[in-house]
Design a protein around this nucleic acid. Structure first.
Lengths: 143, 143
DNA sequence: CTATTTCCTACTATACTCCCGGGAAAATAG
DNA sequence: CTATTTTCCCGGGAGTATAGTAGGAAATAG
């Protein structure tokens, strides 16, 4: 049930980029240094964020990455779906699920649908901007 | 982010057992036949439920398993924690987590705490009895 | 051109998931 | 007692996913 390292790093990367936006393009090297994540691994994560339309990259000298939108408009659910593929707790609720013969009389399906909904609602309701103003202490976010 | 097969099967097993309680001890063979799950795999799952105090087993002829408590008193969160170990979305929120040097200035920790809370609240709020009365159609449970 | 940076493909090692096999231990029936 | 039925327990094994590395191609700036 764990979110992968990829997903956790993705959020840290985006908060980092948000905190340093306005300083032009941000390179992988900078992020790697600040976040203490291997530059190579970082690369594979950022690529997914590019594919997902969350950040854009520019090659060459003076290049780097920047957010496609302001942090207030990037929600966490969207980001995690980029890296995790899906946030659904069971395979039968993902997009590419094959219809299950058992589904109409399945006693557990509604429970999973509800869990999926609860997770989606929470993750989609939190943005990168929200995380910027957060520290590890206190207890905001606890709905 | 997927719940393992173990966890999904555990719920089906418990609903099955709840629906057939009052008929004495229930054997793995019966459950395996009804749920179309290999008896051997079933065994490893039920063992975790025994350890977790959700069901008890009795060996020997006429033996089998039964629920320790009525289905209304067995909540899904508890069951899934038996099989998944933890439902926490990130390792730093599990019991045995080593304190993270980054935590006090971590921008993402509160988000994860909130997600954990939302998941816990939902899963602990649903019981095996709730699932018994459910089918795959309709949309109860969607809070 | 050179230096810098993203982009892309492929690979490895490790761990985990799902499941099976072979029995030992306990309870019951006769 | 023996035979049978059941849970209990350990260990292994194929397949898959995760986390991370390596090497280079393409683009951009000066």
């Amino acid at each position: 049930m764990l979110i992968s390292t990829k997903g956790r790093y993705a959020l840290r990367i985006l908060v980092d980029m948000a905190e340093h936006q306005g300083e032009g393009m941000i390179t992988l090297q900078e992020i790697a240094r600040r976040q203490e994540i291997s530059e190579k691994y970082l690369e594979s994560i950022v690529r997914e964020l590019v594919k997902g339309g969350v950040v854009t990259g520019q090659r060459g000298k003076g290049g780097g990455y920047r957010l496609c939108r302001p942090p207030e408009q990037i929600n966490v659910g969207e980001v995690l779906r980029c890296t995790e593929g899906s946030l659904a707790p069971v395979a039968c609720l993902t997009e590419e699920a094959v219809p299950c013969a058992r589904s109409s009389r399945c006693r557990t399906l509604k429970f999973w649908r509800g869990l999926d909904e609860v997770i989606r609602r929470y993750t989609d309701g939190c943005t990168v901007a929200d995380m910027m103003q957060s520290s590890g202490d206190g207890d905001d976010y606890i709905i």
